[in-house]
Simulated scan of single mutants.
Amino acid sequence: MSSRRTTGGRISEDEINELISKLQSLLPESRRRNMGRASAGKLLKETCSYIKSLKREVEDLSERLAALMSTMETDSPQAEIIRSLLR
């Protein structure tokens, strides 16, 4: 992180702009395209929405994996491959 801080521990405007730019670069291109030149507030809302969608996706994949694992014999080659991938 940048060392440009104002007195009292506050973050400078330059550092906020730098952090906003970094945050926007983490969003997928499809989400950035819909935003154009967005305000910081809009960017934060979109980032929160994206994180929530990622969380739902992880939960869905976890449930699907648990269901798949429950249908396999625990010592099957397929189960061992899945376990090794998860390590």
Rank of each mutant, 00 (worst) to 15 (best):
S2A: 04
S12L: 03
P28V: 07
I51H: 00
R5Y: 11
S21Q: 05
L44W: 02
N34E: 12
L68M: 09
R87C: 09
L61D: 00
I11P: 02
L54G: 08
S3P: 14
R5E: 10
S30Y: 07
S30N: 13
P77I: 06
R83L: 12
R37D: 13
L85I: 08
S2M: 08
E29S: 14
E59I: 12
Q78V: 06
I11A: 01
S2D: 13
P28E: 02
L23P: 01
E59F: 04
E80G: 06
K42G: 15
L86C: 10
G8Q: 12
R10I: 04
R56L: 04
I81T: 15
S49A: 14
M69G: 07
E63H: 01
R87K: 10
R87N: 09
I11C: 06
S39A: 12
K45G: 14
E73L: 15
R83H: 14
K45I: 15
M35T: 11
R32D: 01
L23C: 00
R5W: 08
I51C: 11
S21K: 08
L86V: 03
G9A: 13
S70T: 13
S53E: 04
L43S: 06
Q24W: 02
R64M: 12
S39Y: 07
S2H: 11
R32S: 03
N17H: 05
R64D: 04
K42D: 15
E18P: 06
E80A: 01
A67Q: 14
S21T: 05
M1D: 14
A79V: 00
G9K: 09
L86F: 03
R31K: 15
L43P: 08
L85F: 09
D75L: 06
Q24G: 01
S84M: 10
S30D: 13
Q78H: 09
T71Y: 06
M35L: 15
E57V: 07
E18G: 11
L27E: 03
S49W: 15
A38L: 13
S84D: 06
V58T: 09
S70E: 13
T7D: 09
Y50K: 06
R64I: 14
K55N: 03
R83Y: 13
I82H: 10
L85V: 07
C48T: 04
D60H: 07
G41H: 08
S25K: 03
M35F: 07
R32L: 00
S25R: 02
S39W: 08
R10L: 00
S70L: 10
